[in-house]
């Protein structure tokens, strides 16, 4: 099957200071590369997870795809059509077919609009105001499992979980082929997170939508994604089938990230791979392999030579950037034992 969305060598650059200040301080390169040479593709009906810590550039990838942040280099193709360099008007037809939900469940809804107005926004923007707004609102609210009388509410009268559902309903309004979900569980309680993830899973089963999920929470990607990519300092360090990465991470950063997952079990004997230090600043990218400053397996070559992308011998879809990838045995030793079952008092 051909790719629905194909991103190649995407680079997004931010200015760190104004041109005058750069001149005054003698800064030759007043930019940081928030996203650097990112390539991936999403097929129809597939779910890809983009995982990374704050500052890894994962949200910037999403914003670049949606045209909110122009890339300096690289190509973004939707069904073969190049999207970079298009004007807002030229891009508009594609924004019907791919939509995005944002991090803040309530803050991403226009505060003075009712749910009904919010849900008819996409129709009005795309000149489809002849549709029956009332009927469409009801259809969308039902689709995300909210009572239809919510149509009269304002965003601040919704709980986080309800607001998130409204955001998803809005993204679904024009029957898109791809939804980009930026931190879909951010700001939600544990008891509601599952609801939202289940909603995405159900929509995908029913409507065959492709989903790009962006999150720092590994537990989110585990259950819902087919493939996942791990970002560090704006680059993909590893990408592959989700289950395989959870079972056999090849990049030491992935391994550390997986083991940083705290367990709701006081007796979980974790042989945790704690990584030292913090994510370096984008303004001072380390030389060679950018993870070498924090890597426990660091060798001499790592600090000078940038690792090329290697492909797993078992699976051509699993690739990573590391001079000394973890052997499957090392990786497997990390596999945590099954959790102690919750006592069966009731």
């Amino acid at each position: 099957m051909s790719a629905l969305l194909r991103v190649q060598d995407l680079c997004v650059r931010f200015r760190t200071m104004g041109p005058l200040k750069a001149l005054a301080t003698g800064t030759k390169h007043p930019f940081v590369d928030a996203v650097c040479g990112v390539s991936f593709e999403i097929r129809k009906g597939e779910t890809l997870g983009l995982v990374g810590e704050s500052g890894s550039g994962k949200s910037t990838v999403a914003r670049a795809i949606m045209g909110l942040r122009p890339p300096v280099r690289g190509s973004i193709r939707f069904e073969g059509q190049e999207l970079t360099g298009l004007t807002v008007a030229e891009r508009k037809p594609y924004l019907r077919r791919m939509t995005m939900t944002f991090q803040d469940p309530i803050g991403s809804l226009s505060p003075r609009l009712t749910v009904r107005s919010l849900l008819s926004e996409p129709f009005r923007i795309h000149g489809l105001s002849n549709r029956d707004a009332g009927a469409e609102t009801e259809r969308l609210l039902r689709m995300v499992g909210l009572p239809t009388d919510f149509a009269r509410r304002y965003p601040h009268q919704l709980s986080g979980g309800q607001a998130r559902r409204v955001g998803v309903a809005r993204a679904l309004a024009l029957n898109p082929d791809l939804i980009i979900a930026d931190e879909p569980t951010a700001g939600l309680d544990v008891s509601v997170q599952g609801e939202v993830l289940n909603l995405f899973a159900r929509l995908q089963d029913e409507l065959g939508i492709a989903i790009l999920i962006i999150t720092h929470n590994l537990n989110v990607v585990r259950h819902i994604t087919d493939r996942m990519a791990i970002m560090y300092l704006g680059r993909f360090v590893e990408i592959g089938p989700t289950e395989q990465i959870f079972d056999q991470p090849r990049h030491p950063y992935t391994q550390a990230l997986l083991s940083a997952n705290t367990e709701p079990d006081p007796d979980a004997v974790l042989n945790r791979i704690e990584i030292k230090g913090e994510v370096p600043s984008l303004m001072r990218r380390p030389s060679g392999c950018e993870f070498h400053t924090r890597c426990r397996y660091v060798q001499k070559i790592c600090s000078s030579v940038f690792p090329e992308t290697s492909v797993s011998p078992n699976d051509a879809k699993h690739s990573f950037k590391c001079h000394f990838p973890l052997e499957p045995e090392t990786a497997r030793s990390l596999q945590q034992r099954p959790p102690v079952p919750i006592g069966s008092r009731f």
């Binding site: 924004l95 019907r96 944002f102 226009s110 505060p111 795309h126």
Partner: peptide, 12 residues
């Protein structure tokens, strides 16, 4: 704010 980004992402 995010809701303005959301509107822009819809093509407004």
């Amino acid at each position: 704010s995010e809701y303005i980004a959301a509107e822009q992402s819809m093509g407004a």
